[in-house]
Design a protein around this nucleic acid. Structure first.
Length: 495
RNA sequence: GGCCCCUUCGUCUAUCGGUUAGGACAGCGGCUUUUCAAGCCGUUAAGAGGGGUUCGACUCCCCUAGGGGCUACCA
């Protein structure tokens, strides 16, 4: 078989791109790109009750932000409107309703499906009774006995109906999964699944299988939660005499307590992570390695490298806990590997309101770069530098048990050498090295220690027990602010 | 309850019968140091349990246990 790979990501437009769906989409895309195949985006909107306004746009937009774009199917045009491209459309499932209806009728012709007139009440009662007696809850097949002529007459008379699959009642079916190998199911335990709802629209089972066939999908990569319905899907392919695609059921993403990843315990929308400032490449890298790792001794991969190394057969079987600590670490890594300009543009929006001096703000942001995990933290990390009046109430200006008088003496001495430096030299690029040299020279000459001089100086400049070094602060603050802060600290010590 | 899937350090994972069971995050310790980070170095920590198969099992098979998913006119 040299057929080109055709894979699809088929989300429901129920609001946002789920982080688990992101991984499913990514694995689909990786397989397509790895093999030179086609990545298709189809939207499964057959549940009219769960549609969300703008849901499709949001999903496609988020995928694009994550560097995932389909080669075929749904996309957003220049105006940001939902559009589609490709030879196998439509790619919006409800637009394929006529095809689905025709396929369902064909199944009925072939005696692989039947009309069912059972009311919701009867089904509910049946289920309750089965539960009470400890039996598996499934449809009892009552309408299998309704002759087709009678069924068609009832439909003509306007009676509500659905169409169910007429599954075998005995025997087993063995399905093959790329990740899990053979899986055997007992037909007797599988429900006659509804494939056409009373609103005339198909359920997932019919729509997805028929569309996958029509779109010539070669590999279906989806979540493990679909595994139990695989026999029904294979039954449909078999009934039509179609060749089924290869199936790969991905392990689930888990909460810390190992339950299926949920809103209650985690942020599950990709846009939530984007909003917090996680970088797309960090999210992509992190999610890719949840359930798969090409080597095991390396963690950082670009999208391109993931494509090169992807191997569907090597995907794990067990679910993976979605653990933010590693994502944080990756985000820090990527935050430090991008250019200064890129870094600043990510972080600047969070602090732009604090100080009008753009240049000053940028330099402060650069100073805390090694401390930033998420761009949103930039504000608190730079606050003590950027605000004009330093508050010393929460810090000790004197070092350890150092007497106040000594701290004042050291600050006065440092101030006097700093006063000699021109405004321009004071804050020129890399002035920090010269500040360090001259202040350390002073310390040596006087026979002082680093601690009893540098601690008071640093706290004088930052107002914080914990902060960047005094030399860096001097350079970024500039002469005027630095001297003012030293004066202010001395005053604070004197009272 | 029934069916299906899964099971290596706390977490993500490597290992496709022979390894001192490797890496990463987190943790811990150290170096550096005026502080906090960063960085560098080091370190703790794992094959659920029981049977087989085999010269040899984390790896193959069976059982048990535990976890998860599904059990809708939702996907």
């Amino acid at each position: 078989m040299t057929d080109k790979v055709r894979v699809r990501f088929a989300p429901s437009p129920t609001g946002f791109l789920h982080i688990g769906s992101l991984r499913t989409a990514l694995y689909n895309e990786l397989l397509a790109k790895h093999t030179g195949g086609t990545f298709i985006l189809r939207v499964e909107d057959t549940d009219q009750t769960r549609l969300v306004e703008g849901g499709i746009e949001n999903i496609v937009h988020t995928m694009k932000a994550m560097d995932l774009e389909a080669d075929e199917g749904i996309y957003l045009n220049d105006k940001g409107e939902v559009a589609e491209r490709g030879e196998f459309g439509p790619y919006l499932q409800t637009k394929r309703k006529d095809k689905h209806t025709a396929y369902a009728k064909q199944l009925i012709e072939m005696d692989k499906a039947y009309y069912c007139f059972c009311s919701a009440e009867r089904l509910e009662g049946l289920r309750r009774e089965q539960q009470a007696t400890g039996r598996p809850t499934m449809y009892d097949g009552k309408c299998r006995a309704v002759p087709r002529e009678e069924a068609e007459k009832r439909i003509e008379n306007g009676e509500k109906f659905v169409i169910r699959l007429k599954l075998p009642k005995q025997g087993t079916i063995t399905a093959w999964d790329v990740i899990r190998d053979d899986i055997t199911f007992d037909w007797a335990l599988i429900d006659d699944q509804i494939i056409i709802k009373s609103d005339g629209l198909p359920t997932y089972h019919l729509a997805a299988t028929c569309d996958d066939h029509d779109m010539e999908i070669t590999h279906v990569i989806r979540g493990e939660d679909w595994l139990p319905s695989l026999p029904k899907h294979l039954f449909i392919f078999e009934s039509f005499g179609w060749q089924a695609p290869k199936y790969a059921h991905l392990p689930l993403l888990l909460n810390a307590d190992h339950s299926k990843l949920s809103k209650r315990q985690n942020d599950v929308a990709v846009e939530d992570y984007l909003k917090k400032g996680y970088l797309p490449q960090a999210i992509l890298n992190f999610v890719a390695l949840l359930g798969w790792n090409p080597t095991g001794d390396r963690e950082l991969y670009s999208h391109e490298e993931l494509i090169q190394m992807f191997d569907l057969a090597k995907v794990n079987k067990a679910g993976a806990v979605f653990n933010l600590e590693k994502l944080d670490w990756m985000n820090e890594h990527y935050l430090r590997s991008i250019s200064e300009d890129e870094y600043l543009s990510l972080v600047y929006p969070y602090v732009k309101d604090v100080n009008d001096d753009h240049n000053f703000v940028d330099r402060a942001l650069l100073l805390v770069r090694d401390r930033v995990t998420l761009p949103s933290q930039a504000l608190e990390l730079t606050a003590s530098i950027l605000k004009e009046n330093v508050d010393y109430s929460s810090a000790n200006i004197a070092w350890k048990t150092q007497p106040k008088e000594e701290a004042i003496e050291r600050l006065e001495a440092v101030k006097s050498i700093l006063s000699e430096i021109s405004e321009q030299d004071f804050c020129k690029r890399n002035a920090r090295a010269e500040h360090e040299q001259s202040i350390k020279k002073l310390i040596t000459e006087k026979g002082w220690s680093n601690g009893d001089t540098l601690w008071p100086l640093r706290v004088a400049l930052s107002g914080q027990d914990k902060s960047p070094s005094p030399f860096e602060l001097l350079e970024v603050l500039g002469k005027k602010r630095s001297l003012a802060r030293i004066d202010s600290a001395i005053r604070h010590l004197s009272t």
